[in-house]
């Protein structure tokens, strides 16, 4: 299949990109989700603005107690970055497992978050780490916690004229890990769980269990209240109601949440 007719512009600066978005263009990051949707004609934006030529959107650097990751940084770069691997391992690990090698060469961290696919691994990993995004629009710049960014299936709290410019990862999430379960190696996760053990206790988040990445509050509170890992695993799915589909029933997915939370916690603890 092939995309519908569209107008393409390539932004060379953030201001240009923002102006195009304000004028109604759909931001095109790595295109690993948007392009297939356009080819299947599930998406037919009349105009796209390519963010691939905006230098301020690429790169990874330390900024105080956070790591600043440009929104257009690829999964491959995130997965291989020593800073992220050391200080926010869960995100590097999740990035290393997205799609295939070829997809990781193009797909971006900002694109993953903005696309808000409920099966995307990175949003859960970043949520588990306690990350945030910096967005910019005509109203200026603001910071949104990742937990407040994705609101539903393929839906975010971004205003129509806003772009994610940066992802902020806390440096205190080195003791963290991501575990996921999928059918084939290349497939989207059925369920994925990120766990981070930091100064403020355990944070855990999952995808595949709702219309957006979800914090595993019961799992967290058992562990943060001094409970056992077994109890935490047993309660991990509490409050969640994933829909049954070809990948498995509600019960199966809830079971997987516990299994994966246990695996991720064990791996995080050993780091």
């Amino acid at each position: 299949m092939i995309p519908s007719t569209l107008e393409y512009t390539k932004a060379t600066s953030l201001d240009e990109a923002l102006a195009a978005v304000k004028a109604g263009a759909r931001p095109l990051a790595g295109g690993m989700s948007l392009m297939p949707m356009m080819r299947l004609r599930l998406a037919a934006p009349g105009a796209v603005v390519d963010l691939g030529g905006v230098p301020e959107l690429v790169g990874i650097c330390e900024d105080g107690d956070e790591i600043a990751v440009g929104a257009m940084t690829t999964h491959r770069s995130v997965a291989n970055d020593p800073l992220i691997r050391q200080h926010c391992h869960v995100v590097a690990q999740a990035a290393a497992g997205v799609g295939s090698m070829t997809i990781r060469n193009r797909g971006t961290i900002g694109g993953s978050l903005a696309h808000a696919d409920p099966h995307g691994d990175l949003p859960a990993a970043i949520l588990a780490a306690g990350g945030a995004v910096i967005v910019r629009g005509s109203g200026g710049e603001r910071r949104i916690d990742v937990g407040d960014l994705i609101t539903s299936y393929l839906t975010t709290s971004l205003a129509e004229d806003e772009l994610i410019t940066q992802v902020r990862l806390p440096k205190g999430a080195g003791q963290s890990a991501y575990a996921k379960f999928h059918r084939r190696a290349i497939d989207w996760s059925i369920v994925g769980v990120g766990v981070s053990i930091g100064a403020n206790g355990v944070r855990a988040a999952a995808i595949g269990v709702g219309d957006r990445p979800m914090r595993l509050s019961a799992f967290e509170s058992v562990l943060n209240g001094g409970g056992s890992l077994d109890d935490a695993i047993a309660q991990a799915g509490e409050g969640l109601s994933p829909l049954g589909d070809l990948d498995g029933s509600t019960e199966y997915k809830l079971h997987l949440v516990g299994v994966l939370a246990g695996q991720a916690h064990a791996e995080a603890s050993s780091r």
């Binding site: 390539k10 690993m32 392009m35 080819r39 390519d50 070829t102 193009r106």
Partner: peptide, 19 residues
């Protein structure tokens, strides 16, 4: 459809020619 773009493997069906 895998080709190399500036030395990296990419899917040429998931990129616009203009890119």
């Amino acid at each position: 459809c895998t080709v190399h773009l500036d030395g990296e493997t990419v899917l040429s069906c998931s990129l616009l020619a203009v890119q």
